[in-house]
Design a protein around this nucleic acid. Sequence first.
DNA 1: TTACAGATGCAACTGAGTTGCATCTAGGTT
DNA 2: AACCTAGATGCAACTCAGTTGCATCTGTAA
Lengths: 143, 143
Amino acid sequence: MKNKSLEIIKLLRERGERITPARRKIVEIFFDAKKPLTAAELALNLKKARVKSDKTTVYRQIEDLVIHGILEEVRFEDRVKRYELSLGWHHHHLVCVSCGKVADVELAEDLGKQKNIIFKKYKFQVLRHSLEFFGQCRSCSKK
Amino acid sequence: MKNKSLEIIKLLRERGERITPARRKIVEIFFDAKKPLTAAELALNLKKARVKSDKTTVYRQIEDLVIHGILEEVRFEDRVKRYELSLGWHHHHLVCVSCGKVADVELAEDLGKQKNIIFKKYKFQVLRHSLEFFGQCRSCSKK
DNA sequence: TTACAGATGCAACTGAGTTGCATCTAGGTT
DNA sequence: AACCTAGATGCAACTCAGTTGCATCTGTAA
C-alpha cells in the first residue's frame, strides 16, 4: 500500500504539512492495517518498524490526521479510541467478540428513514449516529 | 420513585444480597435519574444525599447491579461508562450535543432485518449492537 | 448477642490520554 | 552546502476513569 500512502503524503505536503519519518510511517501503517487501530497499537507498529516516537507524538499525529480528514475515529465497546482510514462513505462495523476481527458493512437500507421518524416524533435533529454490531465471525462460529 | 425502588431492594434481598445504606440509596438515585449516570455523577448524588461512600464502593455497587440485571451499561461518544435502569426492552438514545439531555427511542422498525442480511452476506452472527443518535433536541434547535 | 460472609474504605496502582516546555529538524531561503 | 525558524518531537509530570489488595466494619441469620 506504499503507493496509496504516498498520495496521502503528497496531499499533506501540498497542504503545507511537514513530512517527518513518524508521519510517513503512520500513514503507511494505517494503509496496511486490517482493522481500526488504537494509539497503543499504532505505537507498537512504529516500534516494530524501528521508527522511534514518543506516545505524545503518536497522539498528536492521530489528531492531525483526523483534522485532515485522513483518519476517522471509531468506538467499540471498550473505552479506547480507535482510528481507521476515512473511507469517504458512512459505514458500520462487525466486531467479532471472539477473535477481534473487524469488517465494514454498509447497511442495505440506511438509517435515513429512522432519522425522519425521530424528527417527526421528537423534533430531535439527528446530526450523526454510531452503530456497531458485536457477534461472531464466520470462522469463530464454526468452532 | 421510592415505592418502585423498594421493589428492587426486596428483589435483591430475596436473592441473598445485603442491603446497605449505599446500595439502598444508589437504587433510589437511578430511579430518580432522568438520564444515564456515570460513576462520578452517582458518587456526587450520594454525597448530596449525605450517604458517604468511597468511589470503590460506587464502582462495585454498579457492577453488582449490572450482574443482577438492574442496571445496563450505556456508552456515548466520550470514554466514560454510563448506567441506567434496565428497562427490559431494547432501546437506543437520542443524545443532545448542546444540552446533554438524553431521550430513549425504540426504533419503529428494528434492526432484525439488517441482522439477517448481515448473516446471509457475511455469515456473521450478530449477538448485540449499539446505536446512539447525536444531534439537537427540540429546545436547543430553537435557539 | 454473636459470628462471619460480604460490604466498605483507604491507598496505591493501571492505562489512556493531555499539557508545558525545552530541544530538534524539515525544508524553504540564501 | 549552510542557515533559519516554525512546526514537530521527546520527556516529565499530570489528569481522569477505573481497578486491586487488604485491613476493617456491618447486615443479617442463627
